[in-house]
Design a protein around this nucleic acid. Structure first.
Lengths: 146, 146
DNA sequence: ATTTATGCAAATCGTTTGCAAACCT
DNA sequence: AGGTTTGCAAACGATTTGCATAAAT
């Protein structure tokens, strides 16, 4: 399900950050790598009952600091987590249902991305910012809620 | 500081929602209307000491349901609130400093907005979504933190 | 062997809620 | 009067943390 190349890559990132790649962290990466949308902690716990919540919280912090995982904010009461784009090589954004809170990965045309990157960098530097990345969420009603 | 036309407009929205425009809600609109970036509850309390936190939380829910206020998620531990764009007529996005959490309103070129609206609507419907609006955040380092 | 991670239970803290008094209309 | 809002204090719940044990190197 999750390639060993991915585990290699995460391992590298953790080592670079003087962190260990323990079995709990590996399982966390397995769960996140199999998902098609960012997961909440309850979802993670449900998908792998062996993961203690407190350790999951702690490990997500570690993985985030090592840039293996990204925290995502949608609309509901939980944060969500996904593998970093550098690991998946799939630049994407999120479609969020404002009714049921459902979150789905989505990609937008490459030409649009390119133009966004370029123009937003300009806008940011005009305000004295060094742009790191952009977050683009599409908010609406999913097929079930419309 | 805050035009009475704005209060008129908010009043309308509340009446339409069978809600009263009380003095606490009016003061809340005053504070939000004077801000140049979305405010956290602590910021609001600090800007108007007369506002009890619990009532502020409750009133923000009321104002949000009436579409007078929008909840904004940045990076830090508090939600942020701003007047709805329909009231300010100033479509904008947010520049977020990933270091200090500072949030600043920013506008992007109209041509880009237009292209975004059009293409994102297409992308969304391709996924069975009815797009309501998009959220675009620029994440980077502010002048002080860079 | 020594350092780091784990899991449980307890603490934290932003947010929500119950309730009696104040407010509106 | 009749219903709504307010402010205080208590409750809630997602996240964090202390600590003794287990795992990793």
């Amino acid at each position: 399900m999750v390639s060993s190349a991915l585990h290699e890559r995460v391992h590298e990132l953790l080592v670079r950050d003087h962190q260990r790649y323990t079995s709990a962290r590996r399982k966390l990466v397995d769960v996140l790598g199999a998902a098609t949308h960012p997961l909440t902690i309850p979802e993670i716990s449900h998908l792998d009952r062996g993961l203690a919540q407190s350790s999951t919280y702690r490990n997500l912090v570690v993985l985030e600091r090592a840039r293996a995982v990204q925290k995502v904010v949608a609309n509901d009461e939980w944060y969500r987590y996904e593998l970093a784009e550098e690991l998946t090589d799939r630049h994407h954004h999120h479609l969020i249902c404002s009714e049921c809170g459902m979150v789905q990965d989505v990609e937008v045309p490459a030409a649009l991305e390119q133009r966004l990157d370029q123009q937003l960098t300009e806008v940011a530097s005009g305000a004295g910012f060094r742009l790191d990345h952009h977050r683009l969420d599409l908010v609406g009603r999913c097929a079930d809620c419309a």
